[in-house]
Amino acid sequence: MKNNNKQDLLWIYRKMKTSRYFEERMEKAYMEGKQPVFNIGAGPVPGEMHLSNGQEPAAASMIVHLTNEDTVTATHRPHHQAIAKGVDLKKMTAEIFGKKTGLGKGKGGHMHLFDPNVKFSCGGIVGGGIPHAVGAALANKKKGTDRVAVAFIGEGAVNSGAFHESLNLAALWNLPFIVVVEDNAWGISVAKDKSTCVPTNDVRAAAYGIKGYEVRDNDPLEMYRVSKEAVERARKGEGPSIIEIETYRYLGHFQGDPELYRPKDEVSKLRANDPIERLKKYLLKETLASEDDIKALDQQILKEVDNAYEFAINSEYPEPEAALEDVFV
């Protein structure tokens, strides 16, 4: 854990900005070979692409409280959590480009990133990762450690059976488990109030006798404060929590989503309240960083991300026959 707020907040800024820049590059890389006619299977990065621009506070302001030994499970929209968790950025980028140097040797792709070195995993099935985090928390408890496990999910996943079953187990066994619900308001095209019977999901904590927290307005500082409390409680054996953060999805559900279902001006309003810019202003106002500090940091971030892309682009594709390996280990 970091020693003080200044370091933590700079770390959060760094991770959010890294994620943002990584995704802005990905948005462009993904469109290569898909213009003028969009074809989901074409270009150097084929398949579905779910970007998390706007949702960075949910990940960075929680994961700042975690170590490499704490577990994170994520979703089909996993880049911001992966970057915050310290997943090897070069190998992650190479995986997304389908290269043999990737985390999964090109077998997984962007929705299926696994980095056991930092205890990170994600998957393409909604709600699928929640019980895995419960299992990691169970293992932590059995081993007598103070490690925690955090499941990141979207607000759509709370209505899956896996959510309810997992939360009951976590509460029943008093596990060091936290679920972060990233409420970006849309389950693909279905608005939250058309899928969920309560306005916010922190209230569901009452059903399991655990603690529920609500973070409004995609606020990185409030997310930081709330997450700190939840993680500390989990480490002390005080049980699981639900944290729901109201966050923003700047882009479509996937790249290529026509987004006819959402109001035209929604995104521009969201972007005007960008959480990274807000945190930057806060850092400057509180004199936690100078303009020059931020510039220097931004330069480091650009370089780190550019290096990862360069590594990925220059890496080799797997041999076709490699498809037959790794079914059994």
């Binding site: 398949g47 077998k107 792709g109 797997p318 041999e319 498809a323 037959l324 079914v327």
Partner: peptide, 16 residues
């Protein structure tokens, strides 16, 4: 498909 999950990378997917 030779009893493997569908791989992501295009070259491997085409192979299976």
């Amino acid at each position: 498909i030779p009893d493997v999950p569908i791989p992501y990378s295009r070259i491997m997917e085409k192979f299976v």
